[in-house]
Design a protein around this nucleic acid. Structure first.
Lengths: 194, 194
DNA sequence: TGTACATCAGTGAACGCGCGTTCACTGATGTAC
DNA sequence: TGTACATCAGTGAACGCGCGTTCACTGATGTAC
């Protein structure tokens, strides 16, 4: 089955996108190559015509996930009101209950911290692209300080969603999401007056 | 080799404590039963005289880790100044660089979120014990609201440390820890005036 | 007090299974003539 | 335009390995007589 040039590239993208979802659902260690390929509608053997190793796929999937999140943020949150809505969506029960469709950081951050340097670098690059987008929007005059503050704000959202996903008490989980939204919006206001 | 009654209990505790460290270092999926037993100075076969399954050990290790953290917090942070010091220690480069000796939530939270209900319940129980200790100290008159706020504060610390561990840029990671300390201390002050 | 026996924590080999990875092969397509 | 060939994405079985778990066995100790 020889195909045109676009075909292989399209297949590669399909594997990367399906893997992103699967990793977020089952964890990186929890998702095997055979399963990832089946998700993409292929068999395990073809994996190594696209990637040198599972680690290489992990790095590509992390990059892709963050790039998608960046695009989404650029479109849905171009201004202050959009960022407020992003916060509300991020800390929503819907996002909590569908990790496979959600933020890769919330689903995988501590596992990525244990991955090799290639993966951590891919994560760092992808996240900084997002943070710098937001920092430039919120504080065009002081992008460096805003970059750090934006990353801290993002860390808060990540930790809050992870905790909400883990607590066995649904009501408490809801309360934490709601308090998280209040805190994040207050911090955002504080950034403005700063 | 028949031993006294305390012996088996001591061995069980040794397995649980060694496993806690190993899980935080390699992840839950990343640590096999044979390795965990070797860490405790035993061979794999003896595992099932102490636990019905790996999941049962995971739940016990999570409980133990949080109980240790609670004891530590009770001793080291009995007052407002102690809590401030806890925040500084938590978001320190030393804690970032030694996950196996540190906070189980920072090392494992998203993986625990993917575990079965037993493990999530063990985590919930252990964390609420800690949060209620702190809430009772900070706001004895409104413990329920303080419980939620304390959990949100803890989530922020967790997310910040995870992010600091993952970023490939050391200077940026340091800056995020420092900003995290500033944010957490400010939030603590705000809680007082509330 | 001394001896025979029961207990049971721990050993280490083995179970079936899924892991990441390799490889001989297939067969639809693009290219050369 | 029609035919022979080269390419190479994808197949599916197999590799060695470590996983969680089971099991026949060991042997030091506590207990019974």
């Amino acid at each position: 089955m020889r195909y045109g040039k676009e075909h292989k590239e399209a297949t590669r993208r399909r594997i990367i996108e399906a893997s992103g979802r699967r990793f977020k659902q089952d964890g990186i260690d929890g998702a095997g190559v055979a399963t990832l390929m089946k998700d993409a509608g292929l068999t395990n053997g073809a994996f190594y015509t696209h990637f040198a190793s599972k680690d290489e796929l992990v790095a590509a999937a992390v990059t892709e996930q963050l790039a998608q999140q960046r695009t989404q943020l650029r479109e849905q949150a171009p201004d202050r009101a959009g960022i407020e809505q992003f916060i509300r969506d991020y800390l929503s029960p819907g996002h909590r209950d569908a990790p496979e469709q959600g933020c890769p950081s919330a689903a995988l951050l501590d596992e990525i911290a244990r991955c090799d340097d290639t993966v951590k670098q891919a994560y760092t690059d992808g996240l900084l692209d997002i943070a710098d987008d937001i920092a430039a929007r919120l504080a065009p005059d002081d992008p460096h300080s805003a970059r750090v503050k934006t990353l801290n704000a993002f860390a808060t959202l990540i930790g809050t969603l992870q905790l909400a996903r883990t607590l066995a008490d649904r009501e408490l989980s809801d309360a934490i999401l709601e308090q998280g939204v209040r805190n994040a919006l207050a911090a955002l206001t504080q950034t403005d007056s700063n």
